[in-house]
Structures are given as structure tokens and as C-alpha cells.
Nucleic acid binder design. Structure first.
Lengths: 206, 206
DNA sequence: CATTGTGAACGGGTTCACAGCA
DNA sequence: TGCTGTGAACCCGTTCACAATG
């Protein structure tokens, strides 16, 4: 059915829709129209309908979308019917905070490993994790089959570490380090950089 | 000169360019062509030239762009010639990690205040900050003239807290809470949500 | 009768291609 | 010669508008 390739910009909005639907579901909302959803998210109703129509017909004319049904369809589309294990590389304060962030486990993600190159903390316990030695990283990741890593280390070592991760079988990286990664085609990278978000906003201030 | 309104999508790329240029500058690179920059960032050379041409003529034909000069122009455009003070609301592990993140001070941002509603930690010291009582938030923020806040608290209280911040004079919010904020026009909001970034990538996995 | 799904129209962002210039 | 700056062409994402429908 879905022979055409879906624009990445549409894929990127699906998690936004899913998040909003989960909030509505938590408030026991049963049905929502594209107009209601759009108003809540600041997106046009037409865009929501068009986006969803790329994947199937999930709504009912005159009624709207069943919240729980649309949630399950979006989870299906986004491959969220399994638990995705995560490796965190970098156990500084940010890496630790993320390791203990409760939001992952409620969304089909599970932090499984935490690496850091600092000999002073290798082997020590952080929350429920024992900090692992990066020298064992290749074996650990390859062996576990983990596909997703989060990079929370200084920019200076982010590129080389990302390359090692890719060589170990990682195919998706969420990069918190403030640097552009140069990686082979087929490797998915997303960037989280608060400084860039702030700089984007300061353009409009003053 | 710049009478036309600049598309937000272009503004959002300027911090990316700036970041790359700062890395090049740190490596003592003097000049870079749009092609070199594009290759480094995975962006087309034409796009970089077109984006920059919205703001002026910063390059030299046959040579490229002076790295330090382009950095200073971009900082100018993005209003980074002043220190922007930040308030963090929510002193959980994420808020604490961000409060001590060294990347801000090297980029014209300075965390000035840290709020949390937990009576057990109000008044306690976290790094160089004393956790402040949210009841004093309106006074503190209005008094200091802080314009930017970072929200690092649970989704359940993010909306009401954001509204309070806006009433206190905040006009830009970097929201780490996993929820869409509904705020008046003119308030700038950027979202950081690792779960959504991960879900975006899992679409392409398996 | 309200709302979906969708072709068509629209608009705007990206790429192209080249004149202009150091 | 090499690279910028930029109008024009192109492409793609968004909005429009309405037939279809529970």
C-alpha cells in the first residue's frame, strides 16, 4: 500500500501527534477531530489530515479520530511495538540525568548501558547502571544488538566515538554534543543542542 | 536594508552555521568557501550562500568567507553581542545538569536563577546556585529583566508555569517538558524532547 | 451535518546556472 | 581562475475546497 516514500518532515510530526494524543487519552478523551488536534498543537487541520492520509484512513467522517485507535496506529507506523534499548555514551551530569529520565520507559525505550572513559567512575554505580569501560563498547553493543545510542560527551571526542558506535552496529544516534557528525549514509542522526535553540530565539529578541 | 522578513527556517540555520564556524576558528581556519562549509554540515553550498545573502554580502569572490568575520556578523544578526541571562525552572536532575552545563557561558548565555517548588531543596545549593522559591519567581524575574527561561519540570505543571513566566516578562522559552505549550502570540517557544527525536528515528529502523 | 480524505491550486523554499568580481 | 551573490526555474510541502460518508 505505502509504496511512495514518505517525506521526512511528515515522519517528524508523527511523534508530535502521538504525544498530544497520549495526553488526551490520559484525560479520557475518546475522539478528536483534526481541527481540535490542530488547535491544541498550533498546526492546521488540513495538515494533520494530509499527514495521516499518507499512512491510511484512520478517521471517521463526521466524527473525527478515535484517540486510542490513532495512538495504536501511530505506534505501529513508528515501530513502537517493541522496546528499543539505548546506550548512553558519556556519564557526565547530562548523561546521568538522561540515564535516569523516566520518560523513556513509558515510551518503548529503555536505557541499557552507560559508558564513560573516566577511570575514576568506570565500574561505579549511577542510579541502576554500572558505568562501563568504552574499551568494551564494541563487544557490548554488538553483542546486545543495540541499535540506538545517545551521545552525551564533549564535542572534541564526539566524532570519533560516533564512528566507533557505527562500527559496532549502531544505526541511530541522538547527539547532544554541540558538533555536526559526519557519518555514512544510512546512519540516522538527530541533534539536540540547547544553545542553538536559544540562539534561534535571540534573533527575535531586542 | 533588510526590509523583508526573513523566513524562520533560515534564522534557525544561522546558529548551525555559527557553531561550525566557531569550530573552524578554533582550528585556526581563516577562510572557508560555501562549498567547504556545506560539505562539513551536509547542506548545499547554494543554500548557505542564499541564506547569508539575506543579511548582507559577507564573502569575497574567488576566496570564500573570512571565518572570524562571518562569526562576528552572525553574532550580530543573532543579537549575541550581549549576555543573555537565563532562568531555569525545575531543579530535578535535568535542570541541575543544565544549570551546570558549561556550554552556555561560552555562547553569551548565563544561567542566573534556578527555581524549584520542592520545599526540601528550596534554599539549598546546587553548583553555584541557590534554589529559589517559585513564589518569588514573579518578583525575581520581573526585577532582573530576564527574558529567557528554560522549563525542566514535569509536563503536568509546564503549562501553568509557562503562563506565570510570561506574566513575569519572559518572552522566550526553551521547553524540555514533553508537552505543547499554548501561549500568546509574540512568545517564542522552542522544544527539546528526546523521546520525539528517538521516535522520529525508529520509523526508519527495522 | 460535521468531518474525513484528497486532487488541485498555491506558495515558498531550494537548486540551478551564470554574471560579476577579486 | 575560483567563488560569491542572485534572478529564474524548479520542486515540494501546505492550504484550499469539496465530494464522499458515517
Amino acid at each position: 500500500m505505502e509504496q511512495t516514500i514518505i517525506p521526512d518532515i511528515i515522519v517528524g510530526r508523527l511523534p508530535v501527534y502521538l504525544n498530544m494524543l497520549q495526553h488526551l487519552s490520559a484525560e479520557n478523551v475518546q475522539v478528536a477531530s483534526s481541527k481540535e488536534l490542530g488547535d491544541l498543537m498550533g498546526i492546521s487541520a488540513a495538515q494533520i489530515r494530509k499527514d495521516l492520509s499518507q499512512f491510511g484512513e484512520f478517521g471517521k467522517q463526521g466524527r473525527g479520530y478515535s484517540v486510542v485507535y490513532l495512538i495504536s496506529e501511530l505506534q505501529n507506523i513508528l515501530n513502537l511495538n517493541q522496546v528499543w534499548e539505548l546506550a548512553i555514551v558519556g556519564a557526565g551530569s547530562l548523561g546521568r540525568a538522561i540515564a535516569n529520565y523516566p520518560g523513556f520507559k513509558h515510551n518503548c525505550f529503555k536505557v541499557s548501558m552507560l559508558f564513560d572513559s573516566d577511570p575514576k567512575i568506570i565500574g561505579s554505580r549511577i542510579g541502576e547502571f554500572v558505568v562501563k569501560n568504552p574499551e568494551t563498547m564494541d563487544f557490548e553493543i554488538r553483542n546486545s544488538g543495540i541499535k540506538i545510542a545517545m551521545l552525551t560527551l564533549p564535542a572534541s571526542v564526539a566524532q570519533e566515538t560516533a564512528e566507533k558506535l557505527v562500527n559496532s552496529g549502531i544505526i541511530a544516534i541522538l547527539n547532544y554534543a554541540p558538533i555536526s557528525l559526519k557519518l555514512p549514509n544510512g546512519i540516522h542522526v538527530q541533534y539536540l543542542n540547547p544553545v542553538q535553540n536559544l540562539q534561534h530565539m535571540t534573533y527575535y529578541l531586542k
